[in-house]
Design a protein around this nucleic acid. Sequence first.
DNA 1: TATCACACAGAAATCGCTTTCTATTTTAGC
DNA 2: GCTAAAATAGAAAGCGATTTCTGTGTGATA
Lengths: 340, 340
Amino acid sequence: MDVKKQATIVDVAKKAGVSVATVSRVVNGNYPVKQDTKERVKEAISSLNYVPNVQARELNTRKSSTIGVVVPGLHNMFFAEVIDGIEDAVRQDGFSFLLNCAKNDPVQEMNAINALVARNVSGIIVISPNTKNISERFYEELVARVPLVFINGYHRIKGVSYVGNDEKLGSQIALEYLFGLGHKDIMFVRGANSDSYDIKEEAYRQFMEENGTLREDYILNIGEGNGVETVDSAMEALQGLIPRLKPTAICCCNDLMAVGALNACKRLGLSVPKDISIMGYDNISLSRLVEPKITTMDQNMFQLGSNAAKLLIENIHGGQSKRIMLDNVLIERETTGISM
Amino acid sequence: MDVKKQATIVDVAKKAGVSVATVSRVVNGNYPVKQDTKERVKEAISSLNYVPNVQARELNTRKSSTIGVVVPGLHNMFFAEVIDGIEDAVRQDGFSFLLNCAKNDPVQEMNAINALVARNVSGIIVISPNTKNISERFYEELVARVPLVFINGYHRIKGVSYVGNDEKLGSQIALEYLFGLGHKDIMFVRGANSDSYDIKEEAYRQFMEENGTLREDYILNIGEGNGVETVDSAMEALQGLIPRLKPTAICCCNDLMAVGALNACKRLGLSVPKDISIMGYDNISLSRLVEPKITTMDQNMFQLGSNAAKLLIENIHGGQSKRIMLDNVLIERETTGISM
DNA sequence: TATCACACAGAAATCGCTTTCTATTTTAGC
DNA sequence: GCTAAAATAGAAAGCGATTTCTGTGTGATA
């Protein structure tokens, strides 16, 4: 491929008959330059299609306007929506971001992070559903060199910024809501290996112990899986379990599982919410595209992402690390109703 | 925030008592270094947590292992799935990628591309649903400086690589399939401002003229909108139109519109596919999460993305530009049936 | 023992930019 | 009209790496 060489500042300087310093000054506008020199330089710039080399500039100034983002993947719309929020905030501050998918694998997550450090990113946002797999040491050393913001999860490392939801409280709200509708036989559906699921299960156990009876067989773990897989495995498992366990409500750890539960009910000929109520979590767009629309807890992923990005940029500019907790609000839709 | 300064090659050289050249050689392993010197250097490296500065390296070698990706946004899972494919292919070759969302705005698209060029990416992948808004000149000049791969759309610029689907053929296949099921009264649903919609409408018009009667009122343009919006506007428009126009099938330009159509039918009390058939396009994961599952044309977005990334990297390494056309295959599911 | 090749390591140039430090003009003030 | 202070522009150092060019020490060969 015949790639034309990019014009450099030297080319521009030559063409305009000035020094490189002057070109730099025209480009950055941080130093007085006479009007007609300025125009000559600008002309040279546009005629050569000159675009300053960001790498050289950043090498010189020891600043970088790129941040890194590590997510498990994009199969789950949850992450896509978070990234949307990050993108929005990041661009407003003239930053760019490198995206890496770690596929829920701690080794890939560490590799991704190291690659980002080598690329000189000025900060990193990490969404790691399962923090227990990575040593605290790793993160402690990391945060000594580059500002870090975690989104969700069990992060307790000192000096690390964090944006998350109080998922324990959110789960309580969801359960109280179902309880208020008269439900006592509430199943709980979760997946494997995620801090978030653990938090929610804890909330479920506590709530059921205090407000009813905790039945171990009401706790369903559908194992690993992302995106469509989650929906299918929830559906398959519940199709077998619902007739036997006869819950009046199903409280799911995320909307994908709720869609699976919904599909299971449809196949079993159960009417939702008349015969059984279903509750999701997250409020991904999918939850309002299915019929009936799913009642869920809104995590506001866009906010999660944009808050994380803003906080990171604040930290990059020297701000204190912070923990931001967002509220989860209940979105009442069509899959929940009074228990008969 | 107290960020520790990264160790540089000079620090390592000093600590190991060698020259920077030697350190560089140990790091890159492209030149003989005596065993015990090598070990001293490696020790210094790990004790200082030295990570070579990629920017400096790339500035010097005039190579960059970062590519840029420009998409309209992530609201539509279509793009998320394409990016998944890109990420996968890119990582395998040791590249990273910068992601930019252009929000269907030509100005933002050009800005995003310029930002990427300035960041010295070694290639760019562009998914631009509406190519008519950007001058060919812009792209012609761009491709002279950096390898480019377009995904989908009407791109005819010489020397530019392209990965896409034959959406005209795909649409024909879809229509033939519906026709084969006995449908003659087929509505066509599209959105505004997209090459892809234009191509599909063209196929629809041609097919209907040749195989039935083309009714202008059967062509529905639901306007702009992304993600959830698309579903809702399709639903609203069709809810009014279906009772009046009485189509036996609805052929949609993408799965979001098909979900909208499906929801409209549900509200109208029509049974799908008994009373009316619905056909989507793309095969995004959503299409098989709703009930009934949507019959659709598979675009295999993951392949689209990974092929584009592989082709781009090939081009970066000097390969010829190419046009790759993928097949769209019909995925028969539950929303289509014989016309009564 | 003299010679040659090779293994190894350092000095220095270079990548494209920013930014001091200096050297000129202008302009202002009196 | 003369001096002081801006305004303007260039030269050169430096950011952190790679790589060429050079110069050693060492072993093999004759």
